[in-house]
Design a protein around this nucleic acid. Sequence first.
DNA 1: ACTCGTGTTAGCTG
DNA 2: TCAGCTAACACGAG
Length: 288
Amino acid sequence: MPELPEVETARRLIADLGLGRRIADVDDADTFVCRPHSPGKLREALTGRTLTAAHRRGKAMWCETSGVDSSAGPGPDLGIHLGMSGRIVIVAADGWVAEGGDPPGRDAQPRKAAWDRFTLEFADGGRLSLFDKRRLGRIQLNPDIDALGPDAGEVALAEFRALVTKGTIAVKARLLDQSKIAGVGNLLADQMLWKAKISPATPVNHLRRQDADRLYRALRSVLESAAARGGAHTGDVIAARRPGGTCPRCGAEMRHGTVGGRSTWWCSREQAWSAPASELLPEAASQR
DNA sequence: ACTCGTGTTAGCTG
DNA sequence: TCAGCTAACACGAG
């Protein structure tokens, strides 16, 4: 299930194998994945064009398209979001298949054709599909990319500090807010908070400058290692996200709860959160 | 049978 | 209007 590193893999796949191929037909029959949905709308908008570039910001991808002929202006952008279980599958003219997105190894059963939610049929006989079991992926023309914050892999330290520390929300919930920082999902958030030794429940206004800076460095290194190792699920602490799991660093028991509406795991020793004494009620402070 | 989930978002509240 | 929270979406896996 894709976070930033998996989406980048999918984007690169499209950039390498999907560009410059004439779109001969479009299957946009899925009434939930293709939005806004009027059957045939995407077919009408895309047939006769080619994809000319593949971009990504956070977990959102979009492809530029060519004019239907050389005299026409460029076509609409094709927005692609993989959701929780989406994967890009590209079939070459000779039938060779390449995939990127949701790691195939984790659900390696044969692909059912019914799970291809959107397909570009190329004139060369190949195709590009959004394969998505849960149908939470999205295909959309001209997606509003500016609604997203800066890409998590490109945000600068000063910008990160400003975006992450304003307000009172739990730091993990803020990291998951795509309008602030784009690309961090549930696993990357747990991994980077663990790496920075910060409790996921810490209200962001309680983060000191040194905490925010440590979290920023954790973001950089977690993205880098996830990209190198093949996805967000390869993080050191991810294997410990299970009942009975222990911290890979100190051996303490891992705790589980819900933060920002998502399943969350943290080290009971290194990521314990306690409010500064000045913010506790008098009776609570006296118990410390 | 029943619960959970690596994501997003409409709709509600203060 | 904004920040923050919750339920809903869909469906396969355990």
